[in-house]
Design a binder for these strands. Structure first.
Lengths: 243, 243
DNA sequence: CGGAGGATTGATGCTGTTCAAGCGTAGTGG
DNA sequence: CCACTACGCTTGAACAGCATCAATCCTCCG
């Protein structure tokens, strides 16, 4: 697929590993590749498929959380909104990601689709019950939650202490890392989210995001392409996102 | 204790409920009141006491995490530092709080004492093993982690989308809520952390924090007292922290 | 062709930072 | 008991980075 034909709301494809298990037998598109096969087999019978179109919402903040989700294809934005309309996008969910893993009574964020999305839905109480019977699985999911918490702390550092340039560079490098893991191109990054979503994620305005990307482009760090961004000067980006 | 005699590095007292169990028998100061007695009794045998003096560090970011902690008295700051010295204080730990609950291989933050601190230390692998044998307990601790994650998202909203005034007001109201739960005065808040810690927590500079507190004082919202702050105009503070 | 929505770019202004000086209190030693 | 220092906090003045306001462009689509 040429970079010039990326759709505007790009479709995050289903990585091939999700479509077949070890012996090449097709299986229902379903659970995270991050999970060992045995655990997938434990969880899968409990799941139901969900599909969303662009802009449809999966759930809203503070709604009773009767489900847990695992994204199979597409991408979602997760966010909170203040009474006066200010929004913070706390993150984006990609194939393989769980949503609602902390199993609280209510959802901590709202979630809606950036494009067509499919996911596995689990009934929360059944999910919980299953975990209680499989301490190993619960421990694994607890670990995944711990990693999310660690990333949340990265995010605090990003929001509290970094400049606009660093924020944007860090965002791009973070996306690259995630794309590597789910089998998407880490060179030409699809950006299924709009500039406003990025801005609300990084604690900036849409204008600042746009200007910063333009400058990175002019400086030869990146190349802005329809529907995404091509990473050019990897080193410079790495230095900007200075860990 | 008069508000004018608050020590500069105030001692966060041990809530009485930690000192005695149901039948009035004294017990070793130890575990969180947030935990049911049965769970406390399960965990306690595994624990070792730790004491820290002011400014001593409990552990550093990225160190191998061989322990899990539960604070019994005092307060700690949890933070990350960038190579160039910029710091983000991700939170503060008070009596009852667990640290390192996500059980990852390495600590996600550094932790050091704001004043004299005591805590329970658990050997991580033993702790982990115990949890695998007590799914109910594991589920409970998972839930606590989920709440921490939810607060991390509040923090993202705070850092990304709120003004300096709102940040400071929200910080104070948040402290009030926590102090209520651990039995400290929610009217005259002790501030065991310095202005710089608050600044690095809220993504501001020390000058902005100082100015903002001064203005809140002048406006009659709060009263700055040695070692802390007295909340005066509760309503106005609530409106400023506008949830 | 015309409209809608997102993205870009420019001009201006404000919020919070930076730099700098001064204050207050605790602790120390003469 | 009082200087003297150290340290954290406060306050002021000037500055800068990002926000705001506004206009234009681009692409997709009907």
């Amino acid at each position: 697929m040429s970079i010039h034909s990326l759709p505007v709301g790009p479709r995050i494809p289903i990585p091939p590993s999700f479509l077949f298990d070890g012996i090449g037998k097709p299986r229902l598109v379903s659970l995270s590749a991050a999970l060992p096969l045995a655990e997938r087999d434990t969880l899968e019978p409990l799941s139901r498929r969900v599909s969303l179109d662009q802009k449809e919402t999966l759930f809203g903040q503070d709604e009773p959380a009767c489900s847990v989700f695992n994204v199979t294809s597409g991408a979602l934005r997760l966010y909170r909104i203040l009474p006066d309309g200010r929004r913070q996008v706390t993150g984006f969910a990609f194939p393989g990601d769980f949503i609602g893993l902390s199993l609280l009574d209510r959802f901590a964020v709202s979630a809606d689709a950036l494009g067509p999305v499919t996911a596995c839905r689990f009934e929360r109480l059944a999910f919980r019950r299953l975990l209680c019977e499989n301490p190993g699985l619960m421990m694994h999911l607890h670990e995944i939650t711990g990693q999310e918490l660690s990333r949340a702390k990265d995010m605090m550092m990003l929001l509290g202490r970094r400049t606009a340039d660093e924020k944007v560079a860090t965002f791009l490098m973070g996306l690259r890392d995630r794309y590597v893991r789910i089998g998407l191109s880490p060179i030409t990054l699809e950006l299924p989210m709009g500039r406003l979503d990025i801005a609300d994620h990084l604690g900036l305005t849409i204008e600042t995001v746009s200007r910063t990307l333009s400058r990175l482009d002019k400086d030869g760090c990146i190349l802005i392409v329809p529907g995404g961004v091509r990473l050019v000067d990897h080193n410079r980006l790495d230095r900007m996102s200075a860990h």
